[in-house]
Design a protein around this nucleic acid. Structure first.
Lengths: 339, 339
DNA sequence: CTGTTAGCGCGTTCAC
DNA sequence: GTGAACGCGCTAACAG
């Protein structure tokens, strides 16, 4: 018996299903002896009552919202996740948040399929992931509304993302205005393994700022790799070995900026005296690291995404469109004028 | 009609429920006209098919595991969460991870009750939260196995936590061995608002190290407050105003250590030249911050907790007991001998 | 106190 | 192609 039911238990204990149900919910009184018998039967058979059957019977409809993202390592993902949770807790509509992380890009599709046809969620929040047309169709067909927090959907309504090109320009201009002329870009390879072009957009912003200032493009100053401190650290080490090392670095995320800074310091140089570094995101920690960066209100993005999704779920008719605050430069201690 | 069913749809469309079901699953062919009618009816009534009924009918039993924690702001929580997810992805048993955060200590009990009697989860991972006897009883009674990642349960089997007293001693001894005699402790007030005594345990370790080295206790050097960089920052500022400021600070977490360091720097002092700082946790970022700390294998804790819970869920009979690696001192750049 | 039965909402055979 | 009936596992209301 792989999945014994209360009927099996009832039979084994020599009682009716009602009685079994009663001891399970210890509602009305059951005689100690029968209770004992039932409990024994339960143990013997390894019985576990079915969640779904119980829910169907009691009419306990709790809705699930799935949040899927590549991983939850960098704080930028966590801050969005936190925003989502906050929105949920505020609304307090008995929604559950199911967290999915896509350990492996190759498995994304498979996971999405499973989520869809097992009908585990009522709505989906897709963060920093590319969604194929097929997946979109599947989702709409299954009646699962979704919101994207990703750069793959600039034209869509249910999509939240900042103007990353502008952000890249903003960051680069800051360095340029400080007099830096050898400015490097440290970012993710693009598109990254999940098909998301964020790095490319910020890079475009970088290029456009360079052009605006009439600075010739130098491919040596473009260092791309997998996301994370580790890679940024290594890339920066290589940058420092250049005949003419950069005096300013624009890292596409705060986390990568931290890797850059560590590399610079280990090379015996100082930030910002020798090299200026600007990040991107304004992750919570950055304030305490004194990092100059571009603020993108991540927590608020998650909050907004969840609000929109809840709208779609609760009142499909009037989904109010909401505005994300725009990007802003936050100057702190890791950048200074070129000496 | 708050919750129209397929019957309502069928009636409205003038067809049978079977047909409705077919268009819902677009399985066998349905004539375009009837399909249209059904689709219209669905739209008109705002019909959404019930997850649970569908699951019960198809026999799609997916199990849910709840992870509940006070918040997901500090990386230490996130790392444990990540460990849990990894264990789940490795096992790949169609388990879902439902994330709960307790926004308000007062609402913890209420939330736990809801989780239990709506039978949303099959198992629960409780992180850095106190669990009342009543709650334990409720959980066992409801047949919901749980694992604690908290310091409230040293004697229990299903509990994972490091030896925090020892950890506190380790950290303090490190400072003491470096010659520091004015050593401060910056930590959470205890027990914190969630009833968890971690800070107290580490503080006890601090005291015992002090005693071991024959150093008189100075209450001025004990700075307690709410968890987070912010508070640590402020507390440190006050510490620096002391007639005889500390030369070494033991912060109960890496995040708080970051706050301390920022305060020290803003006061025009240097770390570690003027003041040594040691943290606790060895959060991933700490490596790139060059922070001296106590490593406690957080991700692995989460991984282990999930493994144990899965054992309890899958093979209740033989739950293998697993060992958590012990705490270790990691010396990096924020501590140095007293000058 | 306890056994029996009718749903919970949907998928899925069957006959038509 | 389509409708009717049964069953998924459990709870709750009803008799006994």
């Amino acid at each position: 018996m792989p999945n014994p039911t209360i009927y099996d238990v009832a039979k084994a204990a020599g009682v009716g299903v009602g009685t079994v149900s009663r001891v399970l919910n210890n509602s009305t009184r059951v005689s100690p002896e029968t209770q004992e018998k039932v409990l024994n039967a339960i143990r013997e058979l390894g019985f576990r009552r079915s969640k779904v059957a119980r829910q169907l019977s009691t009419g306990t409809q709790h809705r699930n919202i799935g949040a899927i993202m590549p991983y939850i390592t960098p704080p930028s993902f966590v801050e969005r996740l936190r925003g989502m949770q906050m929105a949920l807790n505020h609304q307090d509509n008995h929604f559950n948040l199911i967290l999915y992380t896509v350990s492996d890009p190759d498995r994304q599709h498979e996971q999405m399929l499973a989520i869809i046809d097992q009908s585990t969620v009522d709505g989906l929040l897709i963060t920093t992931l590319n969604v194929s047309d097929e997946q979109r169709d599947l989702l709409t067909q299954a009646g699962i509304p979704f919101v994207l927090l990703s750069d793959v959907c600039a034209d869509e309504a249910n999509c939240i993302s900042p103007d990353n090109i502008y952000g890249g320009t903003l960051a680069t201009e800051h360095l340029l205005k400080l007099g830096h002329r050898c400015v490097a870009y440290v970012g993710d390879e693009f598109p990254n393994s999940y098909g998301v072009p964020t790095s490319e957009l910020r890079y475009k912003g970088y290029l456009s700022a360079l052009e605006e200032y009439g600075i010739p493009f130098n491919s040596d100053y473009v260092a791309l790799g997998e996301h994370g401190e580790e890679t940024a650290y290594k890339l920066t080490l290589r940058l420092l070995e250049l005949a003419e090392p950069p005096t300013g670095i624009f890292a596409m995320s705060d986390i990568q900026a931290v890797g850059c800074i560590q590399a610079i310091r280990e090379a015996g140089l100082r930030v910002p005296e020798d090299i200026s570094v600007i990040g991107f995101d304004d992750v919570q920690l950055s304030r305490y690291l004194g990092l100059t960066t571009i603020r993108q209100h991540l927590e608020q993005s998650g909050y907004l995404g969840m609000q929109i999704l809840l709208d779609m779920l609760i009142t499909p008719d009037h989904v109010v469109s909401r505005q994300l605050p725009s990007l802003e430069l936050v100057v702190r201690g890791t950048t200074q004028p070129l000496r």
